[in-house]
Design a protein around this nucleic acid. Structure first.
Length: 568
RNA sequence: CGGGGUAUAGCGCAGCCUGGUAGCGCAACUGCUUUGGGAGCAGUGGGUCGGGAGUUCGAAUCUCUCUACCCCGACCA
């Protein structure tokens, strides 16, 4: 490709509304352009990268034996009524009506459509196991789209759905997909981690997420420093930090803590550590309010709390007025003694003794509080977020924390959808069996942003070789005037193109500095600088986008050099 | 959905308070000079001032209203 015949529109200035680096660089490089909140047009340049991501996914999915197909983006509302998921998805579903007032959703995911397909087309156990996938545009009406194509409303996703007669067969394909995702992300040259995950609105029994590691990631992931355990913080088991409860030593004492409301204020005021205190949080329960208690230095996991059967979903904290009615004080002085509602404590809290909590009396706290003697709890459960430094739940090593961008999520759904939609096959004995189902998503457009997030510098994008829009950039200095520069560049361009390289030759009439910074921004991995200065001595210059050191290569040898140094 | 903010050329912004010829920088186009790190000079094109209504002789500017977008929060692959 010659730049004169391509469409390159780069910007020197950082766009004002782009917060994270990948969004800034994608706009500056002219890969995408915003048309509305969370809606983007992909330019030819950006689209090339999108296609690279798709191609790798497609190759590896095909290699795994999955079958590509295509489902409609627009789905009849009736399908969603069959599974009752309209509520689960809530406002994220983009609804529309046609001229006959029929209701539709623009698909945010395709379990329903897929299951509808399979229940009619797959009728015998002999057709199983089978794994279908598509690469397609999805729509989710995000409450707040942000970070460019990272969290957009319309996005491209690869979604696969497998069907099985038995749970064992499902497990096998699930593991195969885990391996396939590992291959895909490895080929893209990304640093990533597979972690245990909460299955959210999709549902099912087990699920894992694939995260590209990046400080700007929206998710926190926990992993063992000396073992295989890794989980999203939403899912990560938080073990009890106290193996047994010590005997009470101190008397129950009421102390005045005027105007001390937060844990931080109270610990400072009393001269104690936060791990001697407990936090009592009041939430709406299924039948009246429920108290959730975690240690002072711990955070409540809202995801875990919402999973408790006693707690109403979605999780809602009581407001100031409700707190006042129940505890007789404001939020800063709630405690576990004589609290008139069920109390659910975290595993660590269950083993605490001589602890400090609010006195349910404005401006007072209790010290030397002990379970059984002074207060009772109804249930203990893992309701806190794990934190760095905790022992790993599998007993191997200590947990560390990292930020990740979720680019893939695999689920074992079991028979959740097949039962709801009556998708059955006949087994060997001629008996009707509900299908076992798995689903496997991967964010195609999000991967483009994630790759940039992980690989860039002050001057622009540094594409991993597998995702670069072009492999080689030929950068002639003074192409329009120097006959030997033009000839050298043209010849090399022809030769590389014929040999199958994706080459971009910058034949624009621009100054050298402009051209060089443009290609740093664009992040093309292999760059060949052709100028009179070195050509007079028989050389051209080569540099790799990652290292940027210029290397003199004999003019006659540059083709062989590139052949050796690229993956083609 | 709650709170805050913004809307003027492709991008970034000024002008509004105090109503009277719509401006600046970047980008684009033309010419000349320059040519190994985002050039200089001269010139050119490009605007329903987010939409609607109102006040006024006259509205980018004042009033009302609608809409869109951005940020923070809760929510979420």
């Amino acid at each position: 490709m010659r730049t004169s015949q391509y469409h390159l529109v780069t910007r020197k200035e950082t766009p004002q509304d782009a917060e994270i680096i990948s969004h800034q660089l994608m706009i500056r490089a002219g890969m995408v352009r915003k048309i509305g909140a969370g809606l983007y047009t992909w330019s030819p340049l950006g689209f090339r990268v999108l296609r690279k991501v798709e191609a790798i996914i497609r190759e590896e999915m095909n290699a795994s034996g999955a079958l590509e197909m295509l489902m409609p983006a627009v789905q009849p509302k009736e399908l969603w009524e069959e599974t009752g998921r309209i509520e689960d998805f809530g406002g994220q579903l983009l609804a529309m009506t046609d001229r006959a007032e029929r209701d539709y959703f623009f698909g945010p995911t395709h379990e329903e459509v897929m299951t509808e397909f399979v229940r009619d087309e797959v009728t015998s156990y002999k057709q199983l196991p089978i794994n279908f996938y598509q690469i397609q545009t999805k729509f989710r009406d995000e409450i707040r789209p942000r970070f460019g194509v990272m969290r957009s409303r319309e996005f491209i996703m690869k979604d696969a759905y497998s069907f099985h007669l038995t749970a064992e067969s499902l497990e096998e394909t699930y593991r195969l997909m885990e391996q396939t995702y590992t291959k895909i992300l490895s080929r893209m040259g990304l640093k990533f981690r597979c972690v245990l995950a909460d299955s959210g609105a999709i549902g099912g029994s087990g699920s894992q997420e694939f995260h590209v590691i990046a400080d700007s990631g929206e998710d926190a992931i926990m992993y063992s420093d000396d073992g295989d355990y890794a989980a999203n913080i939403e899912k990560c088991e938080a073990v009890s930090l106290l193996s047994a409860r010590a005997e009470p030593e101190n008397e129950l004492t009421e102390v005045a803590t005027p105007d001390q409301k937060t844990i931080e204020q109270v610990t400072e005021f009393l001269g104690v550590n936060a791990d001697q205190m407990v936090k009592t949080l009041l939430v709406e329960g299924v039948e009246g309010p429920v108290a959730l208690v975690v240690r002072g230095d711990h955070h409540l996991s809202e995801v875990k709390a919402a999973h408790l059967s006693e707690v109403a979903t979605p999780l809602r904290f009581l407001d100031d007025k409700e707190v006042q009615e129940l505890a007789g004080c404001d939020v800063g002085s709630i405690g576990v003694k004589d609290l008139n509602c069920p109390i659910i404590v975290d595993l660590t809290v269950a083993n605490m003794s001589d602890f400090i909590c609010g006195a349910n009396k404005e401006g007072y706290h209790l010290t030397g509080v002990n379970w059984q003697r002074d207060a009772e709890f109804q249930q203990q459960a893992d309701i806190r977020e794990a934190q760095a430094g905790d022992p790993s739940p599998d007993g191997q090593g200590i947990l560390k924390q990292a930020r990740g961008i979720e680019v893939g999520h695999i689920f074992q759904l079991g028979d959740k959808y097949s039962k709801a939609m009556n998708a059955v096959v006949l087994d060997e004995n001629g008996r009707s069996q509900a299908l076992q189902m798995g689903c496997y998503g991967m964010g195609v457009s999000r991967l483009v942003a994630a790759a940039i997030e992980q690989s860039h510098d002050d001057n622009g994008i540094i594409w991993p070789s597998a995702l670069a829009p072009f492999q080689v950039a030929l950068l002639p200095m003074n192409y329009q005037k120097s006959v030997q520069v033009k000839r050298t560049a043209d010849e090399l361009y022809e030769k590389l193109t014929k040999a199958g390289y994706e080459v971009i030759l910058d034949d624009r009439k621009v100054r050298p500095g402009f051209m060089l910074s443009d290609f740093e921004l664009l992040g093309i991995p292999h760059q060949v600088i052709i100028g009179d200065r070195s050509l007079d001595e028989g050389f051209v210059e080569y540099r790799h986008r990652q290292k940027m050191e210029k290397q003199k290569i004999e003019h006659a040898k540059i083709f062989d050099f590139l052949t050796q140094h690229t993956n083609l």
